[in-house]
């Protein structure tokens, strides 16, 4: 836990906490959601467990991503805060708000631009997208399991149909073009 409380100078502050959280989840909880299932309902249970697992991973990743996105806000306030307090102590200008806001928004923009070009951010964005995609795919599988019991076509079934329709239309178009050329 001591590791988790540290903040790094170069990397993301708070990263050790997220790493610790991740390893704790992987060690203590993840195995439960990935243990083999038995019996006739094994596939359904497996899909549901997978979905819960992916949901937790997504929540952890979104927290990490949001925390990264909040960093520039903190940094920009720090950068402008000192100015505001020192100037405020000298004279209480009622119309200084606009100037401070303008300074702050420029500082915020600059901080975001620095963050968005960093490898930490690009890595975190890719990880966030991966966990989001994993969760959506797994949720889709669970939903399709449920829909099997109802007279409602699933996305996979409709996709198959759309694919056939697409290919048929393309063939008809090509044939029409050939006919016109002849």
């Amino acid at each position: 836990m001591k590791e988790a409380e540290k903040t790094t100078q170069d990397g993301m502050p708070g990263q050790p906490f997220f790493d610790y959280w991740q390893s704790w989840y992987e060690k203590e909880w993840k195995p439960f959601f990935n243990m083999p299932q038995f019996g006739m309902t094994r596939y359904y249970q497996e899909h549901t467990n997978q979905n819960i697992d992916k949901y937790y991973e997504l929540q952890a990743m979104l927290t990490e991503f949001s925390s990264l996105l909040c960093q520039p806000i903190e940094k920009s306030f720090q950068a402008v805060g000192a100015d505001v307090f020192s100037a405020g102590a000298q004279d209480g200008k009622a119309d200084a708000g606009k100037a401070y806001y303008s300074k702050w928004i420029s500082a915020l923009e600059k901080e975001y631009m620095t963050l968005f070009r960093s490898t930490e951010y690009v890595g975190c964005l890719n990880k966030a997208m991966k966990t989001l995609n994993d969760f959506i795919i797994s949720r889709q599988t669970v939903l399709e399991d449920m829909l099997k019991l109802l007279p409602i076509p699933t996305n996979s079934e409709m996709d198959g149909l759309y694919k056939e329709l697409y290919e048929l239309k393309k063939r008809v178009r090509n044939l029409e073009k050939e006919q016109v050329q002849q």
Partner: peptide
């Protein structure tokens, strides 16, 4: 920024999901 962000994005995975 789009050029930087999209360079290593797993597009196939995105299409599979969405």
């Amino acid at each position: 920024l789009l050029h930087i962000w999209l360079r290593d994005m797993d597009v196939d995975h995105m299409i599979e999901a969405f």
